[in-house]
């Protein structure tokens, strides 16, 4: 178990270093950082001096090391566009994105999984067919279009819900939350649904496919042949076996919620990291792009680690080494 986790952590560190390298490459070599920091009228000597002071003349590895160490401490320098430390911007924007992603993830999981199980068990029922058709429409609707349609309907025509922003937020120890105000919650509804819908249909279809696969296995047939009731076969035998592959892919899906938040945030002008990032791309604001990249990679690595550990807990075949299994 411990070797396994250490192995995974080492792998994660490797991934983080790779991403940091890409981010550093972006930061250092795409465009000239000095040009972006100083005004037009700065003299060549001043530029050279700044270059020296910032360590841009040091060896590549030294520069990268400095970048990585700073990044590990959350330091990504100054945003070209906002003229403020990137870390400040991130801290300011992070709660919005995390709250939105959390609510969406909960929606996607708690609706998607039961729907998947249901459509697998009642494979030929009318409700299942309706769910399947809806889910196809669901994966055919681009996230931004869902947002636009919701805005048009509930925002413009019915005027029930706010169409942009987070509403009023409460600050608790540096964390701004929209959970505690009525307008904050109201503002959250449409973005959360927008973000959750695509993932939800994906999770539902995935769970259904995996469950159908398991229901065809010999051990399910043998379970039925021993007189185990459907309830047992479906929810004890099949569901547990379905979970093994579902955990992996669901983990990845949850990760992509944070990335898809970029789209949702830009449709609803939600003041999160995604909006920051997309504006940074438009303005070629490299430090912000680099920071976002590293941060997202960090989230993914953590999610993957959790998924691996969960996998380990669910599947005994990974826990027990084959070598010490009994013979004839």
């Amino acid at each position: 178990m411990i070797t396994f986790i250490i192995q995974r952590i080492l792998q994660s560190v490797l991934v983080m270093l790779t991403v940091a390298l890409i981010a550093f490459g972006l930061f250092r070599y795409v465009g000239d950082p000095i040009n972006n920091m100083v005004g037009q009228d700065t003299s060549t000597e001043e530029r050279a001096e700044l270059r020296e002071r910032l360590g841009l003349n040091d060896a590549f590895l030294v520069q990268f090391g400095r970048f990585a160490i700073n990044a590990a401490q959350g330091e990504f320098g100054f945003s070209y566009q906002h003229r403020r430390p990137v870390s400040d911007l991130i801290v300011e924007r992070l709660p919005a994105t995390l709250e939105l992603s959390l609510v969406s993830a909960i929606l996607a999981l708690f609706i998607g999984i039961p729907m998947g199980v249901y459509t697998a068990i009642r494979r030929n029922g009318a409700v299942s067919h309706a769910f399947m058709t809806l889910s196809l429409i669901g994966i055919s609707l681009p996230t931004f279009l869902i947002g636009i349609l919701l805005i048009l309907f509930f925002g413009v025509i019915l005027r029930w819900l706010p169409t942009f922003g987070r509403g009023d937020v409460v600050e608790i120890g540096g964390w701004t939350t929209g959970f505690l105000t009525a307008s904050g919650l109201k503002s959250l509804i449409m973005p959360a649904i927008t973000l959750a819908l695509f993932q939800m249909t994906l999770i539902m279809r995935l769970v259904r496919a995996e469950m159908l696969e398991v229901l065809r296995t010999d051990f399910v047939k043998f379970g039925r042949a021993r007189g185990l009731p459907d309830r047992y076969v479906h929810f004890v035998t099949a569901l547990k076996n379905t979970l093994v592959p579902v955990i992996t892919i669901t983990g990845l899906q949850l990760g992509s919620i944070i990335a898809f938040a970029i789209i949702t945030e830009s449709v609803f002008q939600w003041p999160g990291m995604g909006l920051l990032f997309i504006q940074a791309i438009g303005e070629v604001d490299i430090p912000v792009m680099a920071a976002y990249l590293v941060l997202i990679a960090f989230f993914f690595v953590v999610i993957n680690l959790v998924v691996d550990v969960l996998y380990y807990v669910v599947d005994p075949r990974l826990r027990v080494d084959r070598a010490d299994s009994g013979g004839h």
Binding site: T217, D218, F219, K221, F222, G223, R224, A225, R226, G227, L228, P229, V236, T237, K240, N241, V244, V314, D315, P316, R317
Partner: peptide, 25 residues
Amino acid sequence: KRRIRGARIGMIFQDPLTSLDPLQT
């Protein structure tokens, strides 16, 4: 029928490698 299966008529299948639930003791 389900009450007969297992209780009064038992079944044994061909492939022992796939007949048992891998995730339960």
